[in-house]
Design a protein around this nucleic acid. Structure first.
Length: 104
DNA sequence: TAGATGACTAATA
DNA sequence: CTATTAGCCATCT
């Protein structure tokens, strides 16, 4: 089980209408490097398997909009799941942040 | 092997 | 809130 698979496994566990941060995933995996998480999603997102659109940075800001099918695609998917936004690029973390129980 | 890069975070201004 | 710096570490060249 590589780091990548662990990341994908966790991301797949994020329920609909929820989002989480790179830092949360990193900690849940016993590391502190959120960059690795970002790199994992960038490298092999297992498209249609891993809901990477539910992963945002600590500020609630979406990843670069061009990281998916097209600009605004991440936003469209999230809104469709019931996620509320502060603006076009920021999800309402306060309401939708999902935390893994691995590190309490 | 070394240096640059990056879907990040935290501290500081 | 933004901008800058530093820390982090796998991957790329």
């Amino acid at each position: 089980m590589n780091f990548f698979d662990q990341v994908y496994d966790l991301v797949k566990k994020i329920p609909e209408g929820r989002v989480t941060t790179y830092g949360e995933i990193a900690q849940a995996l016993g590391t502190r490097d959120a960059r690795k998480v970002g790199w994992a999603l960038h490298s092999n997102p297992y498209e249609d398997v891993v809901p990477c659109h539910r992963v945002v940075n600590k500020n609630g800001r979406l990843a670069p909009n061009f990281a998916f099918d097209g600009p605004g695609e991440q936003w469209r998917r999230l809104e469709q799941e019931g996620i509320t936004f502060l603006d076009r690029d920021h999800v309402n973390l306060k309401q939708h942040l999902f935390v893994f129980d691995s590190h309490s």
